[in-house]
Design a protein around this nucleic acid. Structure first.
Lengths: 198, 198
DNA sequence: CAGAAATTTTAATCTAGATTAAAATAATTC
DNA sequence: GAATTATTTTAATCTAGATTAAAATTTCTG
């Protein structure tokens, strides 16, 4: 159908815009990337971007929102798959990394939330908080079901999230490394959580 | 002596400038912070900063250099203290975190290296590489001396460094949390490295 | 293919923020 | 305390890059 086709084309293009923007933002930061930087990735003019977003601030906002949604998706899948706390933690990491380095990637890392407009900032902070909370909940569950060693879930969560969020700083789309990442990162980041290392 | 006193005063003020800048950069990114943002922290005018640095680019460069030097210092201390690979890894993390959240902090996180001028960029990249290499060397030594479980040192190093580098994104100068961080982070980040969890 | 809708470009405008030079103030020195 | 040196401010300038409106082009629909 017409409307459908049109919408989907627009949506698809906008998604390409967001991914191009995410690449730039991850590399040079929000303010550090010009709209020309982004449009160059798409063989477009900077002005053309305004057809897809209201302004630059909305562009980051949408990038962050997209990252948040895909992150939540990873979380949901992990929780749905079930298993012990440790298993869910590991699955979440795997899914999240897969999304980051897979076809849907890259995800914008949310490193400049303060640059957002108040409304957007608060919304992003809120989903971000929810995400952290959900992960900490998994850790807590793991402690209860004795799959995870007693630990400070806030601190541990921050450590793991930090390692994940930092990935775009050193990973730059190498296929071999992507595979390694998806396989090894979940193991590396949860090795320290395991119970029964007495 | 006159020259001495003058130099030390200048140096001291410049150090304050660098720390104020680091705070801003960590919060809003390099391009996202105006010189006014930085000078406001010091009760100065933006123009006054030019007495201490040639321009804004040199400001980030010096921030990054300072972070690199203090990071190297942490590394040197850890290596000097000796012990097994695992012990040195743990010490390094402790020292680095101590510097980040202690009186010398904050350290600028090097998240916008691409924005540096070519010469500076290459220099910072070089010291950054050396730092990573030194840490990987510690891990490798730990594997040899059997204090650390067999692992991919590149990937593991990146994970740990990421967790550390991300700290300024969620830690904002809370004394209680600083203490926790210094105590718990070294443990959390090395828990997964330990051998003998069979 | 003609006309309508969607997409992109061209060509301005407008502004924040970096930079600079000269003047003003503060600190030191003798 | 006068002269010298160090530090900071005031008041401009200058530019990159965001934004916009109108025109041009492409794609779609019948």
């Amino acid at each position: 159908m017409a409307t459908n086709a049109k919408e989907s084309r627009f949506e698809l293009q906008r998604d390409r815009v967001l991914r191009a923007a995410a690449t730039c933002f991850n590399q040079k930061g929000y303010s550090g990337t010009s709209l020309k930087d982004v449009s160059r990735h798409l063989n477009l003019t900077d002005a053309a971007l305004y057809y897809y977003v209201k302004n630059k601030e909305e562009l980051v906002y949408l990038c962050y929102l997209r990252a948040a949604e895909l992150g939540r998706e990873a979380m949901n899948r992990a929780v749905a798959d079930g298993g012990s706390g440790l298993q869910r933690a590991r699955l979440y990491i795997r899914y999240h990394v897969e999304i980051m380095v897979g076809d849907q990637g890259p995800l914008a890392i949310m490193s400049e939330i303060p640059s957002l407009r108040r409304v957007h900032r608060q919304q992003i902070l809120e989903v971000s908080r929810q995400h952290s909370a959900a992960f900490e909940e998994i850790l807590r569950a793991g402690i209860v079901d004795r799959s995870i060693e007693e630990c400070d879930v806030r601190m541990t969560g921050n450590a793991i999230m930090g390692a994940i969020n930092w990935i775009p700083k050193w990973y730059h789309g190498n296929a071999r490394m992507a595979k390694q990442l998806m396989e090894e990162f979940p193991v590396i980041l949860t090795a320290g959580l395991k119970r029964n290392n007495e």
